[in-house]
């Protein structure tokens, strides 16, 4: 059982950054907490100090400004799923938000937290009892990946469902740390490395998500799960096409980071599937087999391309 030594509720970003600085050795941000608490229950997250950013009002809300939609990182998935601006501008984003977990989770879960959700694996998302019995995998301090036997790589899955859509929309994220604020393309936030999937300083805050409104996109979205609620993804696929028929393909659930590829709408589907498969380090760490998920990568891509071609 892990003990939390300190719990801070903060109201402003400045306060948050300062506290993070003071507790730099062992802290963790908590937004909606739906992922943090799950990982604390499983003792993957053992930070002594939690800094609750949930009450930072300035990080909530959705608005369009300068031809960009800004979504505050603390906006809940519930709100994203029913927001008029989003439903009109980016209905697949609403769809992706609504595909996460269950309505109950989404009341608390934030979009920022969803982009930064911890990677998952069948040998990582277990109780401490379980993990101790199998000698902990490398993601939790052990020597090797228990799924593949690898001594080098962790293959935990990146599971965010909103990320693929946001990647397809060329979203950018705003990051705040003690040196100030900067904006970077969403994909730069991800390392693709199972052990440390984010390329983000621990003390940095994700404050905003920006989506350019300029180019009208058509987007395909599909998530593979057995049940229609509660399940984490086994494969999430988004494909967008812009006016110039450039397409962006983004996958989650099949690799330690998002898989992102660019191509043209009239590309050879099979070549694109091959590229996607090559880029996805999918292993048997999910409720569905590696073989099946890889097969579904092909199915979703072909279906997506066809659908996008048909759309006006």
């Amino acid at each position: 059982m892990i003990s939390t030594v300190n719990y801070f509720n903060v109201k402003t970003c400045e306060e948050a950054i300062q506290l993070a600085h003071d507790h730099a050795d062992d802290f963790c941000w908590i937004a909606g907490g739906t992922d943090v608490m799950l990982n604390r229950q499983q003792e993957n997250n053992t930070a002594a100090c939690l800094i609750d950013i949930g009450d930072i009002g300035e990080l909530r809300g959705i608005a369009v400004h300068d031809n960009k939609m800004r979504i505050g990182s603390l906006t809940t998935l519930h709100d994203v799923g029913k927001n008029e601006l989003i439903l009109q501008g980016f209905p697949t984003l609403a769809q992706a938000a609504k595909s996460v977990a269950s309505p109950l989770v989404r009341y608390s879960a934030t979009i920022g937290g969803n982009l930064l959700v911890e990677n998952r694996c069948i040998s990582y998302n277990q109780s401490e009892f379980w993990k101790e019995a199998v000698n902990h995998c490398m993601k939790i301090g052990g020597e090797k990946c228990l799924v593949t036997g690898s001594l080098k790589h962790c293959f935990s899955q990146f599971v965010s469902d909103t990320a693929p859509v946001l990647l397809c929309l060329n979203a950018e994220v705003q990051i705040l740390d003690k040196n100030g604020s900067r904006i970077l393309p969403l994909q730069e936030m991800y390392s693709g490395v199972g052990l440390s999937p984010r390329r983000l300083d621990k003390q940095a805050l994700l404050t905003d998500i920006f989506i350019p409104m300029s180019k009208p996109h058509k987007i395909y979205f599909r998530k593979l799960t057995r049940r229609k609620a509660v399940d984490f993804t086994s494969l999430t696929c988004a494909i967008s096409a812009d006016e110039a028929k450039n397409i962006t393909l983004a996958l989650s659930g099949v690799h330690p980071g998002p898989v992102m590829l660019q191509d043209m709408l009239d590309c050879d589907a099979e070549t694109l599937v091959k590229r996607a498969l090559k880029a996805s380090k999918t292993v048997d760490n999910d409720m569905y087999s590696r073989t099946y998920r890889r097969k579904m990568i092909g199915v979703f891509i072909r279906e997506g391309l066809q659908m996008l071609k048909k759309l006006p």
């Binding site: 907490g33 799950l38 989770v105 009341y107 608390s108």
Partner: peptide
């Protein structure tokens, strides 16, 4: 609504 088991 809040899932009180996940709410600190």
């Amino acid at each position: 609504p809040a899932l009180s088991c996940l709410t600190p």
